[in-house]
């Protein structure tokens, strides 16, 4: 009789359609996810505080990296303006000057050239400096003929430097100057800042993992009896693990949402003074936000780190709970 029972039950199992299996699996995940969210919402203060810690920990590196991105965007605008100024020998005629400019323009790494005659240079100087009287006192024009060379945007700094050296060796050229050094310095500083930001980000990510891990460890302790009973009646490790992993993921997502609010809120607070600054410097908007990509990235980081933390806690503590 018992044998007949068993055959019957194994037959029903075999005849269960694959779709039903999949649906049961999906329902299981949905139950674990919703159940975990329900537990979070029942202990609102405690889970709010955990999410707050995660939010701050995620917001700090996000804000730092966002600021660097903005700075870099502006700096790259300056970088494209890199130019080589060739001051020619004073006796160079305008025709020779023009010929040299055209010759240099043939080079592939040069985008365009501009010639400035001493007269143009003086006029420009007068206009910019508003020192008409002082200029008028000069006996003759002290300014040399000038050829300004604009390299193709994106040309590596080393190649631009080599070009400057080569052009400087031309007999007509008295002196060649590359206006790039300060850009390079700025880039080096930003590279350093970026490294520091990532270092801080890694440390804070570690903090997120540990905070979630500890929170999940407590959740496991609180539900010890439930875990024992579930193991007794045949719950697989995956089944028992699932709600805790979802709990960690929810914490991460909540922290991510909070981090985005903090970063964008901070940007809003700074926007007034920044707009004034942008007006004064006649630049475009100084501080752009995270954007959709950035927001998704912060959320993804939150969920990933939350999962990571709960995985660590679950791995360490679930195995230790066995039915007695």
């Amino acid at each position: 009789m018992a044998r007949g029972r068993q055959q019957r039950s194994s037959r029903t199992r075999r005849s269960a359609p694959g779709g039903g299996r999949l649906r049961a699996w999906g329902a299981d995940h949905a139950r674990a996810a919703i159940g975990a969210l329900g537990r979070l919402s029942r202990s609102r203060v405690a889970s709010g505080m955990t999410a707050g810690v995660l939010g701050v920990a995620l917001a700090l590196p996000a804000a730092f990296l966002l600021a660097l991105d903005n700075l870099e965007r502006h700096a790259s605008g300056w970088d494209d303006g890199a130019q080589i100024s060739l001051f020619l020998q004073e006796e160079t005629s305008p025709d020779e000057q023009q010929g040299l400019a055209e010759e240099i323009l043939q080079r592939p790494e040069v985008q365009r050239t501009r010639t400035v005659t001493p007269e143009q240079a003086l006029a420009e100087f007068r206009e910019l400096s508003e020192m008409d009287d002082a200029v008028a006192m000069l006996d003759d024009n002290p300014l040399p003929p000038l050829v300004v060379v604009y390299p193709e945007p994106g040309t590596p700094a080393g190649a631009v430097e080599a070009l400057t050296r080569e052009l400087g060796r031309k007999p007509a050229v008295a002196r060649a100057r590359l206006d790039l050094e300060w850009v390079q310095r700025l880039q080096a500083i930003m590279e350093l800042s970026r490294r520091i930001a990532w270092l801080v980000a890694v440390l804070l990510a570690l903090a997120v993992v540990m905070v979630v891990g500890n929170t999940i460890r407590l959740a496991i302790e609180n539900r010890r009896e439930e875990i024992v009973v579930t193991k007794l009646i045949g719950g697989t490790d995956a089944f028992i693990r699932r709600p805790f992993l979802y709990e960690g993921a929810w914490y991460g997502l909540l922290g991510g949402v909070l981090a985005v609010i903090l970063v964008e809120g901070g940007r809003l607070v700074l926007s007034g003074p920044l707009e004034r600054l942008a007006e004064l410097y006649r630049t475009g908007p100084l501080l752009t936000g995270l954007g959709l990509d950035g927001i998704l990235l912060v959320w993804l980081a939150g969920v990933g780190l939350g999962l990571c933390g709960s995985w660590v806690a679950v791995g360490r503590h679930l195995a230790a709970i066995e039915p007695r």
Binding site: A24, W25, R31, V229, G234
Partner: peptide, 8 residues
């Protein structure tokens, strides 16, 4: 609970 665990 046992039915939930078994994916019924």
């Amino acid at each position: 609970l046992p039915l939930v665990i078994a994916g019924t």
